[in-house]
């Protein structure tokens, strides 16, 4: 079973502020059809970035595929059939159904495999022929090999610090991708993102960004998974809707980051240092 999502109509530009040169890098990779690997912590904007790039590439094109971006959220039960496709049983016999990867390869969409290391290694091996000069996808059950559409691009992402039972990508898979590493945005940039996404005023957004910066030091210590920009946006959203900043941080940050009372106490103290009562 796969978890796929696709927005067939990327007509509006998804909001995204570049952190470094990732837009230029992705554009150059796309022009060369070099598969892209996005690395970075949770909630730092990888998925939004891919949506944004899909809009940049296909948003103005009249010949864009119906579904320009096909996203697959990987997990450890995903199989190659989930990506490529499978026969389904019907009253009349069997019917072939393309998987999301095949669909993207046929139509020339961007196929985005989110958290790809969660998928089993034997599953990711099917990506190999799509990610080298061949750009083909063999479908054994159909007895055919399809050639990827000229516009097709494979993008995968993973979070190196994320705890999971799966292992890193195999070198033979990893070395087929150009890697773009994402980090949390700098304070000024994150302030702008929070302001835009949460609709909160600039000073509050700046305080939230500063707070995130402080708490991420506990991530380095392995105490918590540092607060993502997404989490800070959620807190900003609560503040926008009239929740007091300390209370919004309590329910949106403190409780979300840890169940350990000592850690919660420490995070609360940082919140209270940043936001007046």
């Amino acid at each position: 079973m796969t978890t796929t999502s696709s927005d067939p109509s990327i007509t509006e530009e998804p909001f995204y502020l570049p952190v470094h040169d990732e837009v230029e890098l992705f554009t150059a990779a796309y022009e060369q059809r070099i598969p892209v690997l996005l690395k970075g912590p949770t909630g730092c904007g990888k998925t939004r970035f891919v949506e944004h790039m899909a809009w940049r590439i296909f948003g103005q094109r009249t010949d864009a595929p119906t579904q320009p971006l096909v996203t697959v959220t990987c997990h450890d039960d995903i199989t190659s059939a989930d990506l490529v496709g499978r026969y389904l049983l019907s009253g009349e016999g069997t019917t072939w159904l393309d998987g999301p990867l095949t669909q993207a390869a046929r139509t020339g969409a961007i196929c985005y495999l989110d958290e790809v290391v969660e998928a089993r290694k034997d599953t990711t091996v099917i990506l190999h022929s799509l990610t080298d000069h061949r750009r083909t996808l063999p479908i054994e059950r159909l007895g055919e090999t399809i050639e990827a559409h000229d516009d097709f691009l494979l993008v995968v992402s993973y979070n190196p610090g994320y705890q999971a039972t799966a292992k890193d990508l195999k070198p033979s898979t990893r070395q087929r991708f150009m890697a773009i590493e994402f980090t949390y945005p700098e304070r000024d940039l994150e302030t702008r993102i929070i302001t835009h996404e949460a609709g909160v005023d600039e000073p509050t957004a700046r305080n939230l960004a500063f707070l995130g910066e402080q708490l991420r030091r506990l991530d380095e210590a392995g105490v918590i998974e540092g607060p993502s920009t997404r989490l800070l946006v959620h807190v900003g959203g609560l503040i926008t809707r009239g929740i007091a900043p300390r209370r919004a941080c309590d329910v949106g940050l403190v409780q979300a980051l840890s169940d350990d009372p000592d850690v919660q106490e420490a995070v609360t103290q940082v919140v209270e240092a940043v936001f007046p009562a």
């Binding site: 506990l218 000592d262 420490a266 940082v270």
Partner: peptide
Amino acid sequence: SLALYYRALCG
């Protein structure tokens, strides 16, 4: 928790 607070502020 104070030590964690310290760590959050200065790393």
